[in-house]
Amino acid sequence: MNELPEEFELMSFFEVEPIKADKDSDVPFYYNILTYVIKSDLEKIEIIISPSYGDIEIFWEQNNILKFNWRFYDIETLKIEKRDNIECMKITFDSENMSDCFLWVKPSFKIIGGMNITH
């Protein structure tokens, strides 16, 4: 990834601390794998970010049933911004086949964007 929010910005966006794959404090944030788990009574959202690989994987469960599992590759940038006055994460890709994606985790989970369809 060429651009990534600071660690504290991601924690603020997701409102949880990440679970780090490598717990060694000497491993830079950028080279770790970060898992953010957001839970409520009925749903669980798990977002795994691998900055140095440019990957994000998202799992969304409702009532313990997996509803959505999507993995994004070739991510160029992650940015936190406001759309319609609500904070979201903008994901841009280093691929002509993908359009920008926007991810909201509050007030509810929502994702818009993805593959460019060409006919």
Rank of each mutant, 00 (worst) to 15 (best):
M1T: 05
N2Y: 09
E3F: 02
E3W: 01
E3A: 06
P5C: 08
E7V: 00
F8R: 04
L10R: 02
M11G: 00
S12K: 14
S12C: 05
S12W: 00
F14S: 11
F14G: 09
E15Q: 15
E15D: 15
P18M: 05
P18D: 07
P18Y: 07
I19Y: 07
K20C: 10
K20L: 12
K23R: 14
D24E: 12
S25V: 14
S25R: 10
D26Q: 13
D26V: 08
V27G: 14
V27K: 15
P28M: 02
P28G: 05
P28N: 14
Y30M: 12
N32S: 08
I33E: 13
T35N: 12
Y36Q: 10
Y36C: 06
I38Q: 12
K39M: 08
K39I: 01
K39D: 09
S40R: 02
S40T: 14
S40F: 02
D41F: 02
K44R: 13
E46G: 08
I47W: 08
I47R: 10
S50Q: 09
S50L: 04
S52F: 12
S52C: 08
Y53K: 14
D55M: 10
I56K: 03
I56Y: 03
I56V: 13
E57W: 01
E57C: 03
E57M: 05
E57S: 13
I58G: 04
F59T: 00
W60Q: 05
E61T: 11
N63S: 07
L66S: 09
F68E: 02
F68D: 02
W70A: 10
R71F: 02
R71G: 07
R71D: 00
R71C: 05
R71N: 07
R71P: 00
R71E: 08
F72Q: 02
F72V: 00
Y73R: 13
K79N: 15
K79L: 06
I80M: 07
E81L: 15
E81V: 14
E81D: 05
K82W: 00
R83C: 09
R83I: 15
R83V: 15
D84H: 11
N85D: 15
I86T: 12
E87P: 03
C88A: 14
C88S: 09
M89F: 08
M89G: 02
F93E: 08
F93L: 10
D94F: 02
D94S: 09
S95E: 11
E96S: 13
N97P: 00
S99R: 06
D100R: 02
D100H: 11
D100V: 06
C101H: 01
C101E: 01
F102M: 01
F102D: 05
W104P: 08
W104Y: 13
W104D: 07
V105E: 06
K106T: 12
K106G: 03
K106D: 12
P107K: 07
P107D: 12
S108A: 02
F109Y: 12
F109H: 10
G113L: 07
G114R: 01
N116R: 11
N116M: 03
I117T: 06
T118Q: 13
